[in-house]
Amino acid sequence: MATHAAIQMVAQRQPLQLAQVPTVEPGDGETLVKVEWVCSTPLDLHQADGGLGTTYPNIVGDSIAGKIMKLGPNVENLKVGDKVFGFGWRSQKERAAQEYATYHQNLLGKIPSGISYQEAVTVPNNFVTVFHALTKDLDLPLPWPQPEQAPERASDPILYGYTNLIGTASKAHHAELKSFDATAVFDYRDPDIVPHIIAAIKPSQTPAIPFILDCIGSKSGSIEPISKIAQAGPTVAVLLPVIVRDSTVEEVPIYDMDPKSHANWAKDVTVRGVRTHFYLQDEFFATHLQPVVMPYMLEHGIVKPNRQRVVQGETFRDRAQNALDILRRKEVSGERLVWRVPDGEE
């Protein structure tokens, strides 16, 4: 069997290692992708330092950009040579940090013309997470194709949401959020952020903010402050895991999967944990979200790539380790860490 190079987590908080793994031939509906770029995410750190949902050895990463090299039977909308991007996680053959990955066609979209690999690879993880959280956990309709009429409650206040968007970020990112038509933006480092948000809403309805999406999931940094805002019946969706104690160079992390238990919520607040990896349970999303909706929205500017920070390193393994170390040291904000898989010049 043919093999290729991959970067593996081999034990909790241990250095990443280069290994040779089988190159899996594409089966029914599958493709073999030559991986060009990888995007590192906080989940990489959760798995490497906290062992979250991980059996070692585990290949790093879940978002790729690359080129189709081979097709299995019954692949309908992709061809050899297509440049693609996607989010995969279900088995080692779909993991990102390897020279070749075997993906089902429904987990890949064609990269639109004018979008580079390093731009495209920042999109899939975020894109799938947001669509799944809004539809599954906040019960908001996101019909496709986009209807002529706005969906019900499109103007309701929401922390990250429809047309009445209230955002929280460090001041360095306020201008960017406002460029996305945020109604109001607040500094999450402000010790008085809770009364400032409440004062700005000037509620004319109950609940004042009916939908809240917590993209951080930090017990002290986001969940506890949100619990003071979430009054009179809203729905709160929290990206899992709950970070009880974050990973640092000195300390191992502590995680939990129950956001309801980590704050004094009002009794009428609905709190749900977002489990992005279950998005395929939605029949429409399973066949359309990544191959159809994602590339269309990127091509038409409805979504845009994150700002990228290209992680350098002499070797494939060095780049993967450097990206993980940057996440551990908390040296990244408002940008995605991206890095090339092949060694040498592009």
Rank of each mutant, 00 (worst) to 15 (best):
A2W: 06
A2K: 13
H4W: 10
M9Q: 06
V10S: 09
Q14Y: 02
T23N: 08
T23Y: 07
P26M: 05
W37Y: 14
V38K: 00
L45R: 12
H46E: 09
H46A: 11
H46M: 11
G53Q: 11
P57V: 03
N58R: 14
G61W: 00
S63T: 15
I64W: 02
M69A: 12
M69S: 06
M69C: 12
L71H: 00
G72K: 10
K79T: 12
F85M: 14
W89D: 09
S91D: 15
Q92D: 11
Q92K: 08
E99D: 01
E99S: 04
Y100L: 12
Y103M: 13
L108N: 02
G109R: 09
G109V: 11
K110E: 02
I111D: 09
S113M: 12
G114K: 03
S116K: 06
N125V: 13
T129Y: 09
H132K: 01
K136C: 11
D139K: 12
L142R: 04
P147C: 02
A150C: 07
A154V: 13
S155T: 13
L165W: 11
L165Q: 15
I166N: 01
G167T: 14
T168K: 10
A169S: 15
S170M: 13
K171S: 13
A172Y: 04
H173V: 04
H174Q: 03
A175C: 02
V185R: 04
F186S: 01
D187P: 03
D187K: 05
R189N: 15
D190E: 06
P195T: 05
P195F: 00
A208F: 02
S220P: 05
G221K: 08
G221V: 04
G221D: 07
I223V: 03
E224K: 15
A230K: 01
V236R: 00
R245P: 07
R245N: 12
S247E: 10
T248K: 05
V249W: 07
E251H: 14
P253I: 05
P259W: 01
W265V: 05
V269E: 01
V269P: 00
F278A: 12
Q281S: 12
F284C: 10
P291Q: 08
P291T: 10
V293R: 14
Y296E: 14
E299M: 11
H300I: 09
V303H: 02
V303W: 00
Q308Y: 08
V310T: 07
G313P: 00
F316Q: 06
D318R: 05
A320D: 00
Q321E: 00
I326D: 03
I326S: 05
R328T: 11
E331S: 12
E331C: 10
S333P: 04
G334E: 02
R336S: 06
R336T: 01
L337C: 01
V338T: 04
W339M: 05
W339F: 15
V341D: 00
D343F: 07
E346I: 13
